[in-house]
Design a protein around this nucleic acid. Structure first.
Lengths: 332, 332
DNA sequence: CTGAAAGCGCTTACAG
DNA sequence: CTGAAAGCGCTTACAG
């Protein structure tokens, strides 16, 4: 067996070298008030010289706290997560907490398994950046440790705080942008059945109806892109489309271009999410951005509040904003 | 303070409920041979009924092993990492190891910090998927725990095994593809100063020279893309480009298209990495793919070997392969 | 096949 | 301001 930390020094080694008791070393290292400045500095110097590092396992076991929070994301491949995680890490570090990440591989089972593993590892709380787990599963975890979710669940779990973006407002931003450009035939391309997608779709319907226009929704999964592209040849063809996410928007963009439909000349397209691909396609995609890092920071704040004992179960909604790029213009 | 695991049952609770000693519970749970089948099943049933979960902190402290490996990636935003991590997780799980991920946020300092945090947390070994840390830094970590790197370092660290793709062969695949298409003026767009990029560049030079053609390299960072696009108007304009990575390839693709240069009609382009964006641009990008998941699996195998005691420090090189898509064709 | 005891590295009252 | 002692939840020889 590889000797872990070949002869890693312990608190006892430090105490010995400094000529004090191990309790005193512990107090000195954690900056306890009842240790004289001189003693403390001497102990710290000895610890540093020995290359002492506090064993998180032992500390966690003794204190009942590890000062580490766990983050479980449903899929590393989704760049949305990178920003949320960065926000979490920033906020956690500012409060003296470490962060470890678990990867759900887009599978609810694996996601749940990573969650269990983290709790067993002794994290003080966990943030789930995924809408993939059913509320019951989240509540089971929340029995064990404080839990905050980033994303939009179908129904609010009981013991879990939720941080998400305001999908209704985001969809309204997209539609209003198209309206202000002068579009009067705006269709919606629904990206999925998830709660966020449904909210965007509903808000689209409301915004369009309020403007006195007709609401038409096609679903990506049901050949909606092809249907939409085909309809573009017709007489009262739509001049603009609000897609439920950037993935759907890009698929439409490419199919339209392949069919010889100019974007934005003949068709304006707005996406949702500000995915990287939207910047890389031509024309670049107009889209709605969620305040991802802020969502991560907010989730951390809520979690740390709950770890510290108080902290209610709440739902926090942050404002998205519109990013205008080349895929939208006035109708022809 | 939030009570962690409100009254989480311990091994003592199980022992009590089952009417045996706690040692026996421990042995039964870990499947020790010296426990009668009947007793074992009874104990397991009691444990399950109580919702008992083994405390990794306590187990790790007692055993000197946590059965968890740490993975530190330089940047979550890079989808390359998702595949490597998936390979690692698959292989680790098959051997009964858990996996936690640390995020370097593209900063060597944060990367190093995450590494320390993981070691303090008691992981049995760590895989660094990043070429961002200098060999010395890796060696320092390797003093503490077995370490395997995925990627290509400038120089081989002493105590660290390395898993990487064969950049020279990958570059040769790209050039040979262009040669077989009939191209005779092939330039290289160097993507960075990193070891992998340099190896690709050198291999490009070799392959082109061997074919009796001239080697020309432009660097992305030094306005190489603009220079290259401008040269496309000239008399003996290049008809093909091998870019050091997909990012550079896509930048070139778009600038060429914007300048009215048809791809692949007037310019064929090959990238490296098989990034997602290469599938999303039009025309889709011909590229070289690294066997990412296999690299992750191999790294795990090497790490587990070293955790188990034997296991030399080695360098493993896996074969890349070519993916032909729309961005390459015969020269005009 | 089963139990009593020491120990992993740390923290935390409790005495002095 | 400092030390001796018990305990966190588990594992591991060691006796029986």
């Amino acid at each position: 067996m590889a000797s872990p930390d070949r002869a890693a020094p312990t608190i006892v080694d430090v105490a010995h070298a400094a000529g004090v008791s191990k309790s005193l070393v512990s107090l000195a290292i954690r900056g306890d008030a009842g240790v004289s400045e001189a003693t403390r500095e001497r102990i710290l110097a000895v610890a540093a010289a020995l290359g002492y590092r506090s064993n998180t396992l032992a500390r966690g076991l003794a204190r009942g706290r590890t000062q580490v929070i766990g983050v479980v994301v449903s899929d590393l491949r989704n760049p949305y997560h990178a920003d949320v995680v960065t926000g979490i890490e920033t906020a956690a570090q500012a409060s003296g907490f470490g962060t470890i990440i678990g990867h759900g591989q887009a599978s609810p089972e694996i996601l749940a398994q990573r969650l269990d593993q983290m709790l067993d590892l002794g994290v003080d709380g966990v943030i789930v950046a995924s809408a993939m787990l059913p509320p019951e599963a989240l509540d089971v975890v929340a029995e064990r440790r404080p839990l905050v979710m980033v994303g939009r669940p179908f129904e609010q779990p009981r013991q879990v705080s939720v941080v998400r973006n305001h999908d209704e407002r985001g969809a309204a931003l997209a539609v209003e942008h198209l309206l202000s450009l002068g579009h009067e035939r705006i269709v919606h391309l629904a990206s999925s059945q998830r709660a966020a997608a449904q909210a965007r779709r509903a808000a689209y319907g409301e915004a369009v109806t309020k403007a006195g226009l007709q609401a038409t929704t096609l679903a990506v999964g049901e050949g909606g892109v092809a249907e939409l592209v085909a309809s573009l040849e017709g007489p009262a063809a739509p001049t603009a489309c609000f897609a439920g996410n950037d993935r759907a928007a890009v698929a439409l963009l490419h199919d339209a271009l392949d069919a010889g439909i100019g974007v934005p000349d003949r068709l304006s397209i707005v996406g949702y999410d500000n995915a990287e691909v939207g910047r890389q396609v031509r024309p670049a995609l107009t889209t709605v951005e969620q305040p991802r890092e802020a969502m991560g920071r907010e989730a951390t704040r809520l979690l740390l509040d709950r770890i510290d004992g108080d902290g209610e179960t709440v739902e926090v909604t942050l404002e998205p904003h519109l990013i205008v790029r080349g895929s939208t213009s006035a109708p022809w």
